[in-house]
Design a protein around this nucleic acid. Structure first.
Lengths: 199, 199
DNA sequence: TGCGTGCCAGAATACTCATTCTGGATAGAG
DNA sequence: CTCTATCCAGAATGAGTATTCTGGCACGCA
């Protein structure tokens, strides 16, 4: 017990790891339903540490949003920039998302949707940031679709820009359905039908 | 002497009208961001009247959700049951939705999405109700699509049930995009591309 | 060995909110 | 017109929460 207490007390905490925890909480429950107390508990970092490092809840949320977008990109979307990107890359992005949403009892939620629904209408800065991320997402989809088109996986007359926006919208629709308890099969079916329409 | 006979003073407000106001607030801001104070102010009914008539916030929200679903049905979806329903009926539903979302400064929001994101994961009853509404929505879309198929507006091999679910998902994706400030043109474009894929 | 800086837990502060309570006002039966 | 159950506005209550403050302890440095 004394060793544990000492370790906790002397831990110089890793802000990046704490931010990761915060992202998870905010993505699952949104801004207002996540209390600073929740974050203190989840990270194991004291109020002192959280406020000293991140400023306040709003600033922490902004960082969390950036981090969320960045990790989504790294994790999946940036592959669409590779010249040999195919429809399968896009399918995989959706499959990962569906797995995230349906797997393991808990629903990971979506920081973008929470931001859009809770904060964007009242907060111009956050809305602009969010819009930038969504445009980027659409753009990456459309770049992937162009590559797929070059491979003949997608019909020649597809408007890739418009289709990219459609896929972005689908991404969010899926999360909403997942949250209300629709199963993986239904969601994957929606993905498959959406992609089929591009061929 | 009956209880009723002793109720000398009758209610001075219209509960249905008050509920309509509450629906509007909840749809715009969600559950936790809408305070009872907001509802008291918007309806012009006293706390006493609100609590006496609707019980508490949670019960009021349940009624609001029912009412929201019902009014969505009446306003647009039930037309899909008519035997001559066409792709145009479906298009019109989406157009109305987009107009609602992009209308002049005010964003009307969506009670379904707020419920899905804020409450459904923690509240089994509400999640079941919501799921029922969404299934109904998908079903109505698919019935409309079958009629459209009979008219030759939709390709013969379309899986109407799956496509109905896809349209439901699209409905929510559009709202999320609208909330982050995408314009009517972009949203209508998504609708058009989604519908084109069914032909 | 001491000193100071940075960290911790938890108390204190100052809100906001759901819900209940209160005291005066009033509609409608008699 | 009188009486009283019900109404309303707003105060009171109690819980939750963001943020700041406090007192103390541990580690690195001299």
């Amino acid at each position: 017990m004394s060793i544990l207490a000492r370790m906790v007390r002397t831990r110089t905490f890793d802000p990046a790891a704490a931010l990761t925890q915060a992202v998870e909480l905010f993505a699952a429950k949104g801004y207002s339903e996540t209390s600073m107390e929740d974050i203190v508990k989840a990270t194991g970092v004291s109020r002192y540490g959280i406020y000293g490092t991140f400023g306040n809840k709003r600033e922490l949320f902004e960082l969390a949003l950036d981090r969320y977008a960045e990790s989504m990109g790294k994790q999946a979307f940036l592959r669409l920039l590779e010249p040999d990107a195919s429809l399968d890359h896009i399918r995989k992005i959706f499959e990962m998302r569906v797995d995230d949403m349906c797997c393991e009892g808990q629903n990971k939620g979506c920081l973008f949707i929470h931001t859009a629904m809770e904060l964007a209408p009242q907060d111009d800065d956050l809305r602009d940031v969010l819009q930038k991320f969504m445009r980027r997402m659409s753009k990456l989809f459309s770049i992937g679709l162009e590559s797929a088109k070059a491979k003949g996986e997608v019909r020649k007359d597809l408007d890739a820009a418009a289709a990219g926006e459609l896929l972005t919208s689908t991404m969010f629709g899926l999360v909403v359905l997942a949250r209300t308890g629709f199963d993986r099969k239904t969601l994957n079916n929606i993905v498959e039908n959406t992609l089929r329409a591009m061929r």
